[in-house]
Each structure stands twice: as structure tokens, then as C-alpha cells.
Design a binder for these strands. Structure first.
Length: 101
DNA sequence: ACTGTGACGGGGC
DNA sequence: CGCCCCGCCACAG
């Protein structure tokens, strides 16, 4: 489980972001958004954790961590709408979940 | 088996 | 927009 979640997080391409619930669902565990946190905690360092945000593109972290996440995202070309990520333009879109758009 | 923990998500006011 | 409550799941002691 944790391994799968981590594996999914690693799939998030640069310049994109995904919500905890989305990662969990993509990994095959819809509803396990909280477990994503575990995956990040257990690993925390060897994956693009900064590409994981909360529902609506809100950065849930705080203090230094939250700052770094935002900085890292902006450094990848991710745009922000106030305190949130521009999901409409940066939400990860897995091939299978892609739509005619 | 029970309790505490956690970077969640959705709904109501 | 902030606040509160509930549901959800897995891990650790």
C-alpha cells in the first residue's frame, strides 16, 4: 500500500500536482487520502511530495515545509491563485483519466 | 481488541 | 472565509 502510494506519487510529472485523494484513487485506494500522508512520512524525501496538495490545490503543510512546497512548485512552472494552485491548469491528468477536454 | 495519530475530503452554518 | 462535525483508512504502541 505505502509502496504503491509512493509509486503513484513518483508518477506525478513536473509542473503538475495531484490531491491526496487523487493519488490514493490512482494508486487503487480511493478514500485512502490519509494513507498518502503515511506514504510521504515513511518516505518523506525520495519523492516529489511537493506535487501533492489538498483538495482545491491548497497547501496543507505549514511553516517551512509549506513555504518550500510552494517555492518548489513555482520553480516547476506551477501557477498560484492566491494561496492555491491553479488546478485547472496544473492538476495531474493520468492518461487513462484524460478526457476530450 | 482498543486507543492515538494524521500534509484528507465533504457538508452545514 | 472560518469554524465545527462526521466519515474514512492504515499504522504503531
Amino acid at each position: 500500500m505505502l509502496a504503491v502510494l509512493r509509486q503513484t506519487v513518483r508518477k506525478i510529472p513536473k509542473g503538475k500536482v495531484a490531491t491526496y485523494g487523487q493519488v490514493a484513487a490512482e494508486a487503487g485506494f480511493p478514500g485512502c487520502a490519509r494513507q498518502v500522508v503515511w506514504a510521504l512520512h515513511d518516505c518523506g524525501g525520495a519523492l516529489p511530495w511537493h506535487r501533492v496538495v489538498g483538495a482545491g490545490g491548497r497547501i496543507l503543510l505549514g511553516g517551512h515545509a509549506g513555504m518550500e512546497q510552494r517555492i518548489r512548485l513555482q520553480s516547476e512552472g506551477v501557477a498560484f491563485q492566491g494561496d492555491r494552485v491553479s488546478m485547472a491548469r496544473h492538476q495531474w491528468r493520468p492518461a487513462k483519466r484524460a478526457r476530450t477536454g
